[in-house]
Nucleic acid binder design. Structure first.
Length: 478
RNA sequence: GGCCUCAUAGUAUAAUGGUUAGUACAACGGGUUUUCAUCCCGUCAAUCCGAGUUCAAUUCUCGGUGAGGUCACCA
């Protein structure tokens, strides 16, 4: 069975640049009835951020990436916080000590720093193993524990990068346990992956260089190597650096709050640096699970493109509306309406949604795009005078057009969109105006918005009374 | 600097030892009785450079160049 894991350290929010290392393990595991483990790597007390774990859990849940083992849900390999697994690491460390494969490092950090400086000066690579103490002391609290490495060549296969080979020079006596008693990532993840039965290790390419040291550790423990899968970086929109918080990489939840749908986020991110060889663009989570395969992950970095994310979001908004109906989309819009919308009931808001939805890039567009459905707009004649279609009309023409329109609309008994469409068309022939002029004038008079849904639909939702009131108000102020 | 990785339009990608090098986003233009969108149609636009192997190379090999990663008691 395939067992994958997502193992973030709780140092802050999950951003666009690193969420893919949660998505791919999820897809891989679920494509084969395997499971994904969530493990919190909180061994660095200095970088620990209060609340970060909850933020991570939140993000995963929102994206629909539920974990089969981990915090909250538990599992046979609990605990899933590394800070609570001290005893396990120490036990595994002792095994290495007994076998003579690990030793306490008595060298003061300043001394090591000095060695390093000297090497840099002479342009030769620094390796701790070249300064390995001959008679290391007994390991005791306060001393770091190092691996006694055996320098040699390593070959391995990375599922994304292909066949890899390195010489002995990349191996060193890496620190296993820090002087504060906590394990390093290098050591803890090996122990945990083995103890938790992880079969596929997916992580960023930045770990590729240290892989030989991990291989040495698997070997020292007599462990079978898991499948190693390096995920290329997501690049910032500008420059060639990987996308990180310093480039203003937004958190995933920030996009949620801006009205991006989790389906769109998942869809975009999954397809950034991966494809199934077909020309399909829109994937549901289930489709992704079925189509995903590790060997089609791109080996080069991919640039993050927010515009495309928003395109996906627009696609998904429309897809949910047309396939699941207005109610389904409406459920997603909670919190995205303008404040004044509170004065209206659900039915009305759904009507508004069903005529505006195809204009939304994000759900938060509702805030600015629908306000005039819920409150009378402020009349600003400038908008009419300066409109590129209406500026040709004289003041009296405008006055006259409004008058005829009001007259005609007043006479409508059965106020509905089809009837409105007919009446508006009649009006067009009667006045001999272009649609851009007549309809534009009416549209602006009732909305004073930069854009709005089709006129007959807008007027239908607004209702007869309000439509006429707004037209009259404009007519009066000319 | 050592070691490692990567390289198709602006972006994300497809494909093949022989194709008019395909698709999507973006940009630009057009169509759908108003606007803004949606939807549809179209235009622009790419195999990093140099050798080698081959009848044929974007594809295979080597060498450059460029970009990135890594060399922590961080993960």
């Amino acid at each position: 069975m395939i067992v994958t894991r997502f193992a973030p350290s709780p140092t802050g929010y999950i951003h666009i640049g690193n969420v893919r290392s949660a998505i791919y393990p999820y897809l891989l595991a679920h494509g084969s009835h395997g499971k994904m483990i969530l493990r919190i790597e909180d061994t660095d007390r200095a970088r620990y951020v209060e609340g970060a774990t909850e933020l991570i859990e939140d993000t995963l849940k929102w994206l629909g990436l539920d974990w089969d083992e981990g915090p909250i849900v538990g599992g046979p390999s609990a605990p899933y916080f590394q800070s609570e697994r001290q005893a396990i690491y120490h036990e595994w460390a002792r095994r290495l000590i007994v076998e003579g494969r690990a030793y306490a490092d008595p060298t003061p950090p300043e001394q090591i720093e000095e060695y390093r400086r000297q090497c840099n000066e002479q342009h030769i690579p620094f390796r701790y193993r070249d300064y390995r103490p001959e008679n290391p002391p007994e390991w005791q609290p306060g001393l770091p524990l190092r691996l006694l490495t055996i320098p040699k060549e390593y070959s391995w296969h990375d599922e994304v990068m292909g066949d890899m080979h390195t010489g002995p020079e990349v191996l060193d006596d890496i620190i296993l346990i820090k002087k504060d008693g906590f394990p390093t990532y290098n050591f803890a993840h090996i122990v945990d992956d083995a103890a938790m039965g992880v079969t596929h290790v997916m992580r960023g390419v930045e770990y590729l260089s240290s892989t030989p040291n991990y291989l040495a550790l698997y070997e020292a423990f007599g462990l079978e190597r898991p499948k190693l899968i390096s995920l290329p970086h997501i690049l910032a929109p500008q420059g060639n650096k990987k996308l990180g918080k310093r480039d203003g990489a937004k958190s995933v939840t920030e996009y949620r709050d801006d009205g991006v749908l989790p389906e769109a986020m998942l869809n975009y991110l999954a397809c950034l640096g991966w494809n199934d060889g077909t020309e399909q663009e829109i994937y549901t989570k289930d489709e992704l699970i079925h189509s995903f395969s590790v060997d089609r992950i791109q080996s080069s970095g991919a640039r993050y493109d927010e515009t495309k994310l928003y395109w996906y979001n627009g696609q998904w908004i429309r897809r949910i509306f047309t396939e699941q109906g207005v109610d389904a989309l409406y459920e997603r819009t909670t919190g995205f309406w303008p404040e004044v919308a509170e004065n209206y009931d659900e039915e009305y808001r759904k009507k508004v949604l069903s005529i505006i939805y195809d204009r939304l890039k994000t759900l938060s567009d509702l805030r600015s795009m629908t306000e005039f459905f819920f409150m009378d707009p402020t009349i600003n004649l400038d908008v009419i005078v300066k409109n590129k279609f209406l500026k040709k009309l004289s003041e009296s023409e405008i006055e006259n057009l409004l008058k005829i329109t009001i007259q005609k609309l007043s006479s409508i008994e059965d106020w509905n969109s089809t009837r409105l469409q007919d009446v508006l068309n009649d009006l067009l022939t009667e006045t001999g105006k272009k649609p851009a002029e007549l309809f534009g004038l009416i549209r602006i008079s009732v909305s004073f918005a930069p854009f709005s849904p089709a006129l007959h639909l807008t007027l239908d939702v607004l209702g007869k009374e309000r439509t006429l009131a707004r037209l009259n108000a404009v007519a009066r102020s000319i």
